[in-house]
Design a protein around this nucleic acid. Structure first.
Lengths: 350, 350
DNA sequence: TGTTCTACGTATATCGTTCTACAAAATTGA
DNA sequence: TCAATTTTGTAGAACGATATACGTAGAACA
């Protein structure tokens, strides 16, 4: 009944490494080694320890591990949760981590406004919580800020084309090519006056890349005169206003290439409300190829950037970095256009 | 240059509580007290310590805190990330936590299939990581499993009407009333043959509640003969098949009350593909009132359950529990129907 | 045989906080 | 004025892992 004995295996609380060691008849250090797959353990010892761990249903505590080693937790930082595209990325990350000890925890970096804060509150919170590494998705941070962050812990940036030496890895779809594919597809279907509804503020390299792709392809297709980029925030009302203005102008474009599917859905909505038919009066193209594109009421032609693959690669690269890689790697997946009715073959003009 | 001195404030690494104490000229324990807003600190000391913390840009490490006390981290467990409704809940949680020391980390519990696992891998992972408490959203877990979980750590369940003593708090919208509102609204607009597209497996109390509400209100409105509940999984293809079968049957209903907006969008899609017009041939109603309902191509009548408020209350209750409350509280928000074109007044029948 | 390696295990300091005791100082009460 | 109480601050042992340094046994080689 004495509770003061230092080696008493207090049964009420959670199992610790000490109790596993005792049960297996080995040292605490040996159990730790097995836990970490560290060098210097015989098969016999490993089996013994594994058996005890299973028997006692032992689970190591991340806090304690984090004190000296890793927490086996990686942070995922999303810019937003409303866009179902991010669910694909998440799925990819998880499937990459499935067979590892790592676990992903996510959050949304709610940097209100377009502040150039070094890093959001969530990033700091994740560092406080000893994340072994971070995957930051579509950040609106300066490259330098990302480089500083990469100096502090393993970092993979998803949706950012700029490199900064070996500070971090990047994972992207080829945004320039994606934009080119859209223009090519539209031109092939008979459209030439194609406007681009891009994102504001235009501080991200993916935005730049996509705009460059649009510009170059428009020129190569002989539509240079029709180049027209307008930029808008993701706020629904703003998008509506912009699209309405665009569609009611004197030289209404024949097609709009939208920054995301979400914006494209808004565009479809506004066009529908204005009594325009799609694609006869106006063609719409989105980006991300989210699940909603398939719905008959949208039938949105979109660019698939394989969110799941992006997430998978990001997680893979991050684990490599945590395991010691110090040189940067950059992964790029080719986009693919998925044609639907919203940008179908252009019919006779009235 | 000697690096062995135990009290040397090693400058290269992260600031610790020790260095803050040294800078402020107080004990480590004093700094800890200030950090935790604990009892027994004078205003003068608090000010001194706060100043040093700010000056040194000190941030406590969650791992170390977790070793003895709290991590000031709470876990959010979503069933899915594709439904934008969950983004509202997340926003609510965050706004409740904004002025506290707590930080939310989220994950998706990917229990593949309808297994009755005690708790998913993510829940265990969160416990391993010493979360101070958990908000579990729309769980497909037995009430008993939730009670067991609640015995292990502070727990709030969002989207579950069953109570289990004081084991956990619940936060819900009144699903029974929500279903009643839908039926009432449809009947008032001239519909009487109203089918319900519910969720499968039907193991959750919110499903039961909503089905009960539908049944009771149908009977009270004199439409008891038309009661027709079919259940389907959330998988897109399954929903499509079900809706198609429903709409091509001999006694096609006049309206479908769908489990979520997402299912309703699918229903709209299928109906559109079949050449039916909405709401003339078939009225559709959803649940959640997500942002996509507003789009002209959907114009979906839906039930608003104030996701943000639900999240806010869940976080508030959880923090109370962490702070020591041991009796259960149950919060219920009244739903509100938002009428749009998809269930507009029924016109002449052919 | 003795020497040198290697492979395997162990003892124990350590990480950065919290928290329980306890001591000192300030305040109160009579 | 002194005891009793309250307030304020400190010392130091936890918490549960990891990792360094070291000991030991057997194998390999001479």
């Amino acid at each position: 009944m004495s509770e003061k004995e230092p080696t008493a295996p207090r049964s009420g609380e959670r199992i610790t490494i000490r109790e596993v060691a005792q049960d297996a008849g080995v040292s605490v250090a040996a159990v730790s080694k097995v836990l970490r797959d560290a060098y210097g353990v015989s098969d016999a010892l490993r089996a013994k320890v594994r058996a005890s761990m299973a028997k006692l249903n032992y689970r190591p505590r991340a806090s304690a591990r984090g004190m000296r080693g890793r927490t086996y937790t990686i942070g995922l930082i999303f810019p937003d949760l409303r866009n179902p595209f991010f669910a694909d990325i998440y799925a990819g990350v998880n499937s990459a981590l499935e067979r590892t000890q790592y676990q992903a925890m996510q959050g949304v970096n709610t940097t209100s406004g377009a502040l150039n804060i070094t890093s959001g509150a969530l990033i700091e919170a994740m560092i406080d919580r000893q994340m072994d590494g971070l995957v930051v998705i579509g950040p609106n941070m300066e490259t330098q800020a990302l480089a500083d962050l990469g100096a502090r812990l393993p970092l993979v940036v998803l949706g950012q084309h700029n490199h900064a030496g070996d500070a971090f890895d990047t994972v992207n779809n080829d945004d320039q090519l994606g934009a080119r594919l859209v223009v090519r597809h539209l031109v092939a279907n008979g459209y030439s006056n194609i406007a681009m509804l891009s994102l504001s503020p235009q501080n991200s390299s993916i935005i730049q890349q996509r705009e460059i792709g649009y510009r170059l392809e428009m020129m190569e297709q002989g539509c240079g005169d029709a180049i027209n980029i307008l930029r808008e925030t993701q706020v629904l009302r703003d998008v509506q206003v912009s699209v309405r203005r665009l569609l009611s102008g004197a030289d209404r474009p024949e097609a709009i290439f939208c920054w995301t599917d979400l914006m494209a859905f808004e565009a479809i909505s506004v066009a529908t409300e204005m009594g325009l038919s799609i694609p006869e009066d106006i063609a719409i193209v989105g980006y991300d190829n989210t699940m909603f594109c398939d719905l008959a009421q949208n039938s949105l032609t979109s660019v698939d950037q394989s969110g799941e693959l992006l997430g998978l690669q990001a997680a893979r690269l991050l684990v490599e970095r945590i395991d010691g890689r110090t040189t940067a790697e950059h992964f790029m997946v080719p986009p693919r256009i998925v044609a639907r009715a919203s940008a179908g073959t252009r019919t006779e003009q009235e």
